[in-house]
Design a binder for these strands. Structure first.
Lengths: 124, 124
DNA sequence: CAGTATCCTGTTTGATACTG
DNA sequence: CAGTATCAAACAGGATACTG
């Protein structure tokens, strides 16, 4: 890894990297995207498959994803209502870098956790 | 991309992915790590090279990075004080997945921005 | 079923001033 | 130089209740 490449991150004073972190770095976004990687799902499917999420946060996060063009929302004029969510091409394209990050996590988080515990022990 | 791979993200109900998001998904962490990819830097170097960061946030973020073992902090017993920061091996290992994410951002953020603007126009 | 509407909480960030 | 201390603002997220 040549350090010059990190200009991708530092380039514009962090505007670009922060633009995406603002979008994906919240509690539920990546989880929803990863869940939708299975294919089209209804609101209730997502609610069931994502443990711990509230209706409010599921709605909010889906709206943001729709607004950003990562998820397509289709409403069927039926009673009772049916609403389906699918990843767009852009949404799908987020999966590989997200997996790269997840892979890093799997590999390094144990060490990080240990380091953090040792730091806490040394200091306050 | 096979959807089964997203179990890396969804696996434990999002615990692992959230463990890393909690660490790197704040306003300054990735920027500091990317800046330190140049090599060892002093506090004042970082302060100058990262536009907009306050002393407080630089200190706080560096302490977290040190605690997590991503950055090594060396204090020299001199007057005036000199403190140097370097990426550890773990810290360096974060660069490739971070670049993957940055690459995705460069490629897709324009489209996302347009999509968001269109959404705002359609709705409130 | 698929949401909205309110209220409430903790956390993150920033501004400013001060110090060994 | 390399921080610390204090205060205040902003925001994300959750609990609960209600609805077309």
């Amino acid at each position: 890894m040549e350090y010059e490449h990190t200009c991708l991150i530092r380039g514009d004073g962090g505007q670009t990297i922060r633009a995406i972190l603002d979008r994906i770095c919240n509690k539920w976004t990546l989880l929803i995207v990863a869940t939708l990687d299975q294919g089209t799902l209804r609101f209730s499917d997502l609610h069931q498959q994502i443990p711990g999420i509230s209706q409010r946060m599921l709605t909010l996060t889906l709206r943001h994803l729709e607004s950003d063009g990562l998820v397509a929302r289709t409403v069927y004029a039926e009673v009772p209502p049916r609403v389906e969510y699918t990843l767009t091409a852009t949404g799908k394209s987020l999966i590989p870098p997200a997996l790269a990050l997840a892979g890093w996590a799997i590999e390094h988080v144990p060490h990080i956790e240990a380091s953090r515990a040792a730091y806490q022990a040394r200091n306050g």
